[in-house]
Design a binder for these strands. Structure first.
Lengths: 321, 321
DNA sequence: AGCTAGATTTGACTTTTGTCGAGAGCCGTG
DNA sequence: CACGGCTCTCGACAAAAGTCAAATCTAGCT
């Protein structure tokens, strides 16, 4: 796409200011516009990812606790957001960190799978803009026509928009009423291709859901509270990309799962980097299940959750010895 | 390496300021230090690459001229620094652009070959800091113990330092007095390994030298002006990584080349991305030779040089038709 | 052509940031 | 333990950047 004259100016201003280190008034003189305009262009440049400001997330991996978690759970990397009152909202803290980590993990030409949930949408929402034209963001699971603003397709599109990347949406409902229909739909070329393309992703971004009445699956009407409770009795331990998993991180053998249009658990495991972000403390067991199932190589959690995970690991190894 | 307490503070300040978007005074309150200290920490964070500010170099590739050059010379990407009085010093302009392009081309885990020359050193000198711990910078050619500050090992080390990367130096002179000695030295395990590792690089950064009395080879005493003139008569067209190349970009068959300890031309060609940066207008012919020899996939030049290249390409194709 | 809605630009003002020298704390040393 | 030399920190001031309402420009429409 050709650059419009206005964008040209933004580029030039950004270049002179950030790369050459000129002051805004100097830039204004060079470009023969007012300094106020320069300030505005620079803001736009930051907002659109023409300039990229990223901060190292080392601080959060260097934590001893993060190291111990990596060892205990055999994860590639763990980031721990300190919960001790850095910033006003503690849950935002995790999302901000997750967004930074995510941007750090993305490389050029990557294909990225994005699932769905409040956590993912929060991340998308605060993620800074970047300019990664050759990146593709694919939706990992079908849609739920919910009144919520964090529908799967919205998560995907928002992240794609922020990265200046291509978004690949999934035009299918997350869950159908009969297994036959789901099977038929999965066989549709459009859908089949999308599903087949998931294992080619380089990076996945998702959270894990809890199996209770607060789950989005219940709130969006995919399951009734009663059904959810029943699934729980059957061994449901968490929700990943709209599917129910058991304590071992395998798809639970149940009618609901067979009616779902989503990435197969095996496809998810085939993705090189699987970034899981967990905000709520209540998702302890779902997270354990996801880790057990190898659905997570990179993990972003809060300090409290990290502590619980370590305690758990300690208890297990103690029992074993 | 464990983070020192002071660095910890720098990280925290950078995090709160750049990732969370707090103001300096808010950060100061959070960290219980004065705002002045925060300002200082932030400067350090920028200087050490804890925060990374990069600007898209799109502006310079989007130039129509750049596109035409890519087509005419079958290059992967071309960046053209506008010479029309953006900034005070025009040659710095090219170096600043080259540094940005270089940083854009580097990815995590890369192995980078760096050659030597004033141009390369200028780039190293203005390059902003980054935090790429798993990158290795290797020296492409032997040293010249010159009084100059841009010795091959210095170029390598400076770039490695800026990137926070590992520098791999070459402890051998660039040129020896006899062919036998050079051959013997090349067979030394330490040297052999370094030379063998060059083709494994993902990215090379170099310029091309002119074959005249101003060449560094002459200034550093590797060749006398008379010898240089003689080589020119024999078909020398340029200097790459301390070696003499002919108009086709092949190593010239001469005693000097046989006495040199440097990356073989074939090894250079084996490197995926070969970024060539040319500042001086006088290096037109050397550049043509380098391009002819396929020693350059990515090119950064000034507008005037770009014009000359296009004229040349036009003339050649006209003659051909 | 004349008009209007919207975007863009500007000057004046406010807020935020950078800087500098002074002072405080912290060693190792005589 | 007193002394320099060192780094780190702070307060106050100067410089730079951000903001906003008003002015100007633009393009589409009648």
């Amino acid at each position: 796409m050709a650059i419009r004259p206005a964008e040209q100016l933004i580029h030039k201003a950004a270049w002179l200011y950030y790369a050459h280190g000129l002051r805004q008034d100097e830039v204004a003189i060079q470009l023969k516009i007012s300094r106020a305009s320069v300030a505005m262009y620079l803001r736009k440049a930051r907002e659109t990812g023409i300039v990229n400001i990223s901060t190292s997330t080392q601080l959060f991996t260097d934590d001893v606790m993060a190291r111990r978690l990596e060892d205990a759970f055999k994860l590639d990397a763990v980031w721990i957001a300190p919960e001790n009152a850095y910033v006003a909202d503690p849950s935002t803290d995790i999302a901000v960190l997750a967004a930074s980590v995510f941007l750090e993990l993305v490389s050029k030409g990557d294909r990225i799978g994005v699932a769905w949930g409040r956590t993912v949408y929060t991340i998308a929402d605060i993620m800074s803009y970047a300019d990664l034209q050759d990146v593709t963001v694919v939706q990992l699971c079908g849609n739920l026509g919910a009144p919520y603003s964090y529908r799967p397709d919205q998560c995907t599109m928002e992240i794609a928009r922020r990265l200046n990347a291509k978004g690949l949406n999934f035009y299918a409902p997350l869950v159908l009423s009969t297994e036959e229909l789901a099977e038929g739909l999965r066989a549709e070329p459009v859908i089949r291709d999308q599903l087949a393309g998931i294992s080619d992703c380089d990076l996945a971004l998702y959270s894990v859901g809890a199996v209770d009445a607060n789950s989005h699956l219940v709130k969006c009407g995919a399951l009734t509270p009663a059904e959810m409770a029943a699934l729980r009795k059957q061994g449901a331990a968490g929700v990943i990309a709209g599917q129910i998993i058991d304590a071992n991180g395998e798809a639970l053998d149940c009618s609901y799962n067979r009616r779902v249009i989503s990435a197969e658990i095996a496809s998810l495991r085939a993705i090189g980097k699987r970034l899981m972000v967990v905000q709520e403390d209540s998702k302890f067991e779902p997270l354990l299940a996801a880790i057990a199932g190898g659905l997570c190589t990179h993990l972003v959690v809060g300090a409290h959750m990290a502590g619980r995970l370590l305690d758990h690991a300690g208890a297990v190894s103690k029992k074993a010895s």
